[in-house]
Amino acid sequence: MQLLGRYLRQGDEAAVATLVDRHQADLLRTAHAITGEAQAAQDAVQEAFVRLCRDAATLVGAAGTRSSVGGWLCTVARNCALDAVRRKRHAPLPEQVRQPTPPQGTPADEAGLLWAAVARLPELERAAIVLRYRDGLAYDAIAERLGKTSNHVGVILNQAVTRLRSDARLAGISP
């Protein structure tokens, strides 16, 4: 919040650059988990930072009630990513998934089938699965990034795993 105040008072771009450096990794991970595309994630995170600059005065003025720039940025980036996904209803997960590079020792069709099943999941379930199994985040961290409670994240993950098991079994992926 101090960096934001410095930018607001002096127009200090270095303060904004510091904020970008500090929060971009988390925001990109979350946006990428939701959109499944690096370019869409970059666009969502850029939009979040742009809105931060535009609403800096409001944020600094409300610093007493909401002092977390990171939380605000995460909420905005998540909403931007969800908007992007809804605009592109059929957006698949990582672009490599469309033509997945199979891990070594794994049949190519197994990975492709699995990621195709992940891509068909609803946005929140897909994001929860990616944040949980790709990035290894705990429930609390996932809940913070998705704006849900930990219990809700558990429910979302359970539903997502059930769907994936079913799809994998149907696809013939060996457990």
Binding site: V16, V20, Q24, D43, V45, F49, C53, L93, Y133, R134
Partner: peptide, 28 residues
């Protein structure tokens, strides 16, 4: 096995590319 397949998924970008970063600073 499914968890291992998911763990090998392509990672998310860790930083904004230069074009997006410059766009943010310009807009700031």
């Amino acid at each position: 096995r499914l968890a291992e397949l998911l763990r090998r998924a392509p990672s998310a970008p860790m930083a904004l590319d230069e074009a997006h970063r410059q766009a943010v600073l310009h807009e700031a």
